[in-house]
Structures are given as C-alpha cells and as structure tokens.
C-alpha cells in the first residue's frame, strides 16, 4: 500500500472540545488504502472522543481539517461522511428497538451506495456476510442491538463494515468485551476489510486484538495527543511496560 499516491484519510491539527473542555489537543493522521493503524492509550485519554468527533458526533466541537481521499469533509454531517465512504464502528452500539437488523442494513446500504439494492440480491449478500462472521441467520430479524450481548453487538459492527464497504473505517474499542472466539471472528473481518483496501484506525487499549490483526503503524495516545508513533513492536512494548514510562512530563506534576 506504500505506493498509494493519496491517503484515504487524513486529519491535521484536530482539536476536540466537549463543552469548554479541550479533550483532543492537536492530532495529525494519514492513512493509506489497506493500511491499518492502531491508536492505543489508557482509559480517559480522549481516543474515543477523537473517533466520535471525526465521524461528526453533535456533542463535540471539532477544529482542524479532516479529509477523505483528499476531499475536505470537516464540516459535513455524519451521514454525508458515511456516503463519502467513512465508517465508525461504535464502542457502545446503540439499540434501536422495533427496527430489524435486515431492514436497517438495507436502508444503510441503499443510502451509502446511492441506489436501491433489490431485496433478493441484498438478502443473499447479507446472509453470506453473516455466515463469514459465524452469525445465525435469525439475527437478521432481530431488533437492532436490542438485547444483544456485547459480542453480538461487535459482530454486527463488523458485519456493517463488510456490507457498507467504506474507504476508511474507525473502529472504536471493537475488541472490548469479546471472548477469544468472537475476537478471532472480528479480527478476520477486519483483515478481510483491509485486504479490500479499506484504510483503518483501530482504537484500543489492549494489545490482544493485535495478536490477530497486524497493524502497519501504532500510535500511543495520551492526554489528547499522539505521544509516540512506531511499528507493531510498539504495541508489544506497551503490553510489557504499560503506559507510565511514556507519561508526558507536563502531565506528571502532582
């Protein structure tokens, strides 16, 4: 992927406020097609805020520039970003009772592809992707995330990733709350997406997903900033030594 002329995603000098509190304090990223970046950091460091704000969560104020395949999308609404090929896998996927997985996904696929997929064709595609993720076909008829276990919710996020085929995906703690089997399934989905040239950012604070998904780049995120960037070996180092050795001097005062 190193020969890609243009990153599928980039952001420059991104700051994010929640009310008047600055949570993200200047982040630059550049991700090429098929490239996987991991953003690792302790709880409360602001990495989930960054992911949500990049997608356009209305509760956050974002400053800086966000580009998808070279196009400035900073001020676009979440649905416009989605239609331009951006995706966020939620840490806590929201339940929408009364709306089945199948009808929701068909609406989403139609919106993102900009064309109605015939029901039969859509169903075939859906069932085949569900099989890839070892999901029971009955899943399609259940209400969206309503009463789903943590693992079911995360599988559904990956199912959406595979159905919506974005250019770029942010995966927010997609590995949390998964048993080892579910983790493997989710990792396979992520690898499948990468092999189809989706650029991805995995936000996580565990190293264990990285046993199954090999990131090209690892960023360490603390106190609203990327404090260090390296290769996959950085993740292993974090696993061994924790985050304390990276504590920025400025944040160390008592």
């Amino acid at each position: 992927m190193s020969d890609s002329s243009q990153p599928v995603f980039s952001c420059k000098d991104v700051h994010v406020w929640i009310a008047d509190k600055e949570v993200v304090k200047g982040v630059d990223l550049e991700i090429s097609a098929g490239e996987i970046h991991a953003i690792m950091g302790p709880n409360g460091s602001g990495k989930s805020t960054l992911a949500n704000a990049l997608m356009g969560h209305p509760a956050y104020t974002l400053e800086g520039t966000v580009k998808l395949a070279g196009e400035d999308v900073t001020s676009l609404s979440p649905d416009e970003k989605a239609r331009k090929g951006m995706f966020l896998a939620f840490q806590y996927p929201v339940a929408v009772p009364g709306v089945t997985v199948a009808s929701f996904l068909r609406a989403a696929v139609s919106a993102v592809r900009g064309t109605e997929t015939p029901v039969r064709e859509f169903r075939k595609e859906l069932l085949s992707r569900m099989e890839d993720l070892a999901m029971d076909p009955a899943f399609a008829g259940r209400y969206l995330n309503d009463g789903f276990s943590g693992g079911e919710k995360k599988r559904l996020e990956i199912l959406q990733l595979l159905m919506l085929k974005p250019r770029f995906a942010l995966l927010d703690e997609t590995d949390s709350g998964l048993d080892i089997d579910a983790l493997k399934v989710v990792a396979e989905g992520i690898n499948a997406a990468a092999s189809q040239d989706v650029g991805m950012v995995l936000v996580t604070h565990y190293q264990r997903l990285l046993n199954y998904v090999r990131p090209h780049v690892v960023h360490v995120f603390m106190d609203g900033r990327i404090v260090r960037t390296g290769g996959p070996e950085l993740a292993l180092e974090l696993e061994e030594r924790g985050y304390d050795w990276l504590e920025p001097a400025a944040a160390g005062g008592v």
Binding site: S77, D79, A107
Partner: peptide, 25 residues
C-alpha cells in the same frame, strides 16, 4: 447519530426511529 453514521440523512433516521418505536407495539 448511530443511524446517521450509517448514511441515513437526519429526516430518514428520524423516520426509522419513529417507525421502530411504533412497530414494536
């Protein structure tokens, strides 16, 4: 936000939510 992040425009997302709300019943 969840539905919008999947490409549904604001109005369409609201319709989906209302439809689900009523359809459950």
């Amino acid at each position: 936000f969840y539905l919008q992040s999947r490409g549904l425009a604001n109005l369409q997302a609201m319709r989906v939510i209302v439809y689900g709300f009523l359809d459950q019943t």
